[in-house]
Amino acid sequence: MSKSADHATRTPRLIAQGVLWLVLYILLIMLPVALLLLPPRPQGSGFWYDFSLALGFAATTMMGVQFALTARFHHATAPYGIDIVYSFHRHLAVVGTILVLAHPIILIVINPALLHLLQPRHVPSHMLAGIGSIVCLLALVASSLWRKQLRLHYDGWRIAHAVLAVAAVGLALLHIEGVSYYIGEPRKHALWLVLVGSWLLLVLRTRLVKPWLLSRWPYRVVAVERDAPEVWTLTLEPDGHRGIEFEAGQFAWLTLAGSPFAMHEHPFSIASSPVAAPRLQFTIKELGDFTRTIGNTPVGAIAYVDGPYGAFSMDRYPEAPGYVLIAGGIGIVPMVSMLRALADRGDQRPLWLIGANSRLERVALRDVVSTLALRLNLRVIPVLEEPPANWQGEVGYLTADVLNRCLPAQRDRLEYFVCGPTPMIHLVEHGLYSLGVPMARFHTELFDLV
């Protein structure tokens, strides 16, 4: 198949795959309630009682299937981009928690005498498991939604997240086993155990099999260079294997100075060109506890790369007449990967790079972009919040007015890639919308989800 024919069939194929995975997900979620409906069924216990019970089953399943959403399956996440799968995981956790809470609340409303079961002397062990599951779930959701406000260290939060998730689902399963009313029948019980077993396999895959596979494909740090204040570029080469192939703009989880089993990995956009693979470059800004140590990484250190992931790539829109790359701060990194790839291919389509930063001296990869501009049909437009005294360029935030001045008149067929802090993405989205850019041409990469 020729390259253009391949591209022509790729988008519909990705959409079809996306729909297929979504349908599969919804079927998986519905499976346990369908299981309850299978004959023979025990006698009904009243509409609200059974409604509450089915909610409990379905919400537990939602939580169990969450393990699939974070298992980083390449085929299942490729159509959407894994950032959005994680975002879906986060929203589902909120919805699932409401459904989980609805289960005991409905039961207590229809039968307030059940509150007596909550007194320590009377609590049967399976009820205790149910209460424990809810406590773990609430801790899980609160620590994820408000990690920064609670000042939880990212690495510690990740370990707590994994433990609490398994505890919340495990205790919910013990609760269901203890009640054992609707899955008491042996065949139903067996089917339920198969379903639960699949979640256990997912946990084992994520926590044991995947790290073991990663440990067999180590990388070596071959260079550590300072790019701008608090910005470092790491260059990695595969150690004894062929490395990964990626699309420009994608990202990977990077583990430095530690075992892949230790869960000390962090997601970073790849800065290098796919043409330069298997050599990989990551340009990283000091933003947190881990990234503040990046500059101290010794040359020769072992690293592990889990990737590539993400749908943020111009290669997904190969027919575009041109690309507009809008970056805030370190959001420049995936843009540079795309520019490098286009330069390596000799692509001369018109490109616009709008880079928003606080100050000129803090602009990351400035020299790299200047060099790339010589090889590309690229217009670079820096926008500064605090410009130097003799600054002639754009000033302030990426408002519709600024974008209007930067973009060409024929702007509705270009593809727009936006990466940066969430408020900037929202501002640009509103700006482009007001300028008549079709939202289907607006592509973002979500990071900083927790």
Partner: peptide, 30 residues
Amino acid sequence: MRNRLARWLAWLTGALIVLLAALFAFIQNR
């Protein structure tokens, strides 16, 4: 936009589950 879609899809999934649970309770008690 994708994030909004993910949020709507999550709430839609929740609504679907509520409907399914109600259907189960209805069948069980008719």
